[in-house]
């Protein structure tokens, strides 16, 4: 059979930043931002638990909530995200718990990481691999992705609370964070 040369029909961005970005370091005195969404109540609950622990360690916590990303509202969202990233030292972004919300969590996380601040995207287990694929396609394959169990949003608040407690230490570890200087020195 005749051999021919065919043209590759695919295109993708070629650049990539494989860096994880800077570690979060000591939490005390840092401004920590949580990206929330409007779908996953479980993420609101987990963020509350984690924020309380971080505030107890001397951090200041702020929130930014993702809504629609199209139209005038989407344009305003993009601007407010940029402005919010200017006000924080560490970014924790979630929740990658569906397709489009993984997409936007990762896209916002890449924006945070590219701004130079310690950044972690939070995903549930079934969307972990997808989050890494999107981070790579977004030019930031080194993005830190912290994984929570799945399913999560289907649980009650009472059931989610122990998950938040159980996964806090792991979050700090992935972020390269410590609650106190003593802890960091140790």
């Amino acid at each position: 059979m005749a051999q021919v040369k065919v043209l590759d029909p695919t295109a993708s961005r070629q650049d990539d930043n494989a860096s994880r970005g800077p570690d979060a370091g000591v939490i005390a005195g840092k401004r920590i931002g949580f990206r929330l969404d409007q779908i996953w109540r479980c993420w609101d609950w987990i963020s509350e638990v984690w924020a309380a622990k971080l505030e107890a360690a001397g951090a200041q916590v702020s929130y930014w909530r993702s809504t629609n990303r199209s139209g005038l509202e989407g344009e305003e969202q993009a601007q407010s995200l940029d402005a919010w990233l200017q006000t924080i030292d560490i970014a924790i972004l979630g929740l990658a718990n569906c397709g489009s919300c993984t997409g936007w969590t990762v896209r916002d996380s890449v924006a945070a990481a590219n701004s130079g601040i310690p950044t972690v995207a939070v995903a549930t287990a079934n969307f972990e691999e997808f989050a890494h694929v999107l981070a790579k396609r977004g030019g930031r394959s080194g993005l830190r992705v912290y994984v929570l169990p799945y399913p999560l949003n289907e649980l009650s608040r009472e059931e989610v609370h122990p998950v938040a407690e159980a996964y806090f230490e792991g979050l700090l570890s992935l972020m390269g964070a410590s609650l106190t200087r003593e802890e960091q020195a140790a």
């Binding site: 990303r69 199209s70 139209g71 989407g74 344009e75 569906c98 397709g99 489009s100 993984t102 997409g103 936007w104 896209r107 997808f130 999107l134």
Partner: peptide
């Protein structure tokens, strides 16, 4: 176009 929001359309579980 940004307002078509292809990013979400591509990624979604829908």
């Amino acid at each position: 176009e940004p307002d078509f929001e292809l990013y979400g359309v591509n990624a979604t579980t829908a």
